[in-house]
Amino acid sequence: MRAYPLTWRLLDVLEAGVAKVFPRRLAGATPYLMLAPAVLLVGLLVLGLFQIADGSLRTLDTTTFLMSESYSLDNFRRALTEPLFRNVALKSFTGSLIVTAITLMLALPYAYVMVRTKSAALRKILLIALFLPFFIGQVVRAYGWLIILGNQGLVNETLSFLGIGPFRLIYNYPAVLFGLIQYMLPFAVLMLAPALTAIPEETEAAAESLGANWIQTFIHVVLPMARPGFVGAGLVVMTLSLTDFAIPAILGGGSQDFIANAIYDQFFRTSDQGLGATLALLLVAAGSTLVALVFALVGTGTLGMGRAKQ
C-alpha cells in the first residue's frame, strides 16, 4: 500500500465516491447524461419554434398594436401571395444557389492546394489568409467592401487613372452575391479540407500509375471521393447564405433584401410580429426541406451520422 503514489490513492478515493453517487449499474446511462445539455438546448429551440408558430397565427391590430386573440391563417395567405415576399424569396433562393456553386468552385482548388502542398510556408499562408477574415467579422468586412468598391473607392480611383469609370460596383445584386461568396469561402474551404485530407495521396498516385493524367485523376478520383465534403460544404454555404442578413442589408443598397431582411422589417419596422413569425417559420420550413432533399438525394456527407464507409 505504501508503495502506491499519492495520486493513485487519491483517484481510488474519488472513484469510490463516484461509485456511491453513481452506481456502476447505472453506467449505461452515462452517454445519455452527457447528451442532456445538448437536448436541453435543442428543446429550448423547439420551444421557441412553438412560440413562433403560435405568433404566426395571430394578426396585428393596428388600432391597439396588440396581436389578435383568435387564430387565423391570414399571415400565411399574405406571405404566400404578396409579390414582395415572392420576390424576396426568389432573390434569396437564387442567390444562395449561385453563391453555393461559385463558392464550392473557388474553395476546391484552395482546399486542395492547402491540403496537398509540400511547402509548410505556403500552407501557413493559405491558413492565415483563410482565418484572418474570421476575426474581422461580417459587418466590418461588408463595410470594407463599401470603401473599396465605392464610387470614390480604391477600385474606381484606380480605374479613373486609366480614364474609365466610375462604375457602380456596390448596392446591386452582384455585389451582394460577391460579398456572400467572399464571406462563405472560408466555411467551404474548412468543410472541404478534411474530406480532401481523407483521400490518401496513394490513391491519386494509383490513378496516375493506372494511366490517368492529373485532370482525369481529379475528375474520376478526387471529386467523387471528396463528395461528402462537397455535400457538407454545400449545405453549410447554402443555408448560411439563404438566411444571411448583414451582407444584403449593407451591400444591397436597400433594394436587394433577402428573407432575413424581410423578417427583420416585420419585427422591427412595422411591429407585425405575426407576419414576421410566419416568414421565419416558412424560411425554417423551406431551408429544412432543402436540406432534407439534399440528404435524400446525395447523402449526408461530412455532416452525416453513422460510421463513415471506407
Binding site: T62, E82, P83, L84, G254, S255, D257, D265, T270, D272
Partner: peptide, 12 residues
Amino acid sequence: SAWFGKFKAIMQ
C-alpha cells in the same frame, strides 16, 4: 405597414 409593404414590393 401597408405603405411600407407596397413601397418595398415595388423596390424589391
